[in-house]
């Protein structure tokens, strides 16, 4: 049965009426019309669906929306804008990271939390902090350059 569930999305309170076991990802994409985050695996294995829930990088494909009730959810679109880019977004542009770009969401959102908690990470901390995320196009080298660049911009 559908329930009314409210949470804050990119700074605005949103209320949806959905089955409470619906993954947050589906609610963000279908009920709330976001074209980002993405469905990659539905298994919390790739990170394409990553959002911040109360600041924590979270795989939204595997979080029932009921558990997001009352939280603050932030997506890539809420992280920064072309006018006010997050330093990671600026760095990913400067390094021209994408191949297909479908996975970018996971890297940037995960790295944003990493740099927030560890403003000057070592190379090993960057690699460990991003481990587990997937990029099939193989942009790993450019991703690492972009995260290093953003860290230096802090």
């Amino acid at each position: 049965m559908a329930e009314r569930i409210a949470f804050e999305l990119n700074g605005e309170t949103r209320t949806v009426e959905v089955a409470p076991d619906t993954p947050l990802l589906y609610v963000l994409r279908n009920e709330l019309g976001l074209s980002n985050p993405h469905f990659g695996c539905g298994l919390a294995q790739c990170g394409a669906c990553t959002v911040h829930v109360d600041g924590a990088p979270t795989r939204s494909c595997s979080l029932p929306v009921s558990q997001a009730a009352g939280t603050k959810v932030m997506t890539l679109a809420g992280l920064g804008t072309p006018e006010h880019p997050h330093r990671l977004q600026a760095a990913f542009i400067a390094e021209q990271v994408p191949q297909c770009g479908y996975c970018l969401n996971g890297w940037i959102m995960t790295a944003a939390a990493l740099l927030r908690d560890t403003p000057h990470p070592s190379e090993q901390q960057i690699r460990d902090g991003l481990s587990g995320l997937k990029c099939r196009c193989g942009t790993h080298m450019a991703i690492l350059r972009a995260v290093r660049r953003a860290a230096q911009a802090a």
């Binding site: 074209s35 980002n36 993405h38 997506t75 890539l76 679109a77 021209q96 994408p98 770009g101």
Partner: peptide
């Protein structure tokens, strides 16, 4: 010269085929 699609991808603004409604 830089890619056309990078900013839209980085700001979560680019529609993929998965986003067609």
């Amino acid at each position: 010269p830089p890619r056309f699609d990078v900013p839209a991808k980085v700001f979560g603004k680019l529609d993929y085929v998965t986003d067609i409604k």
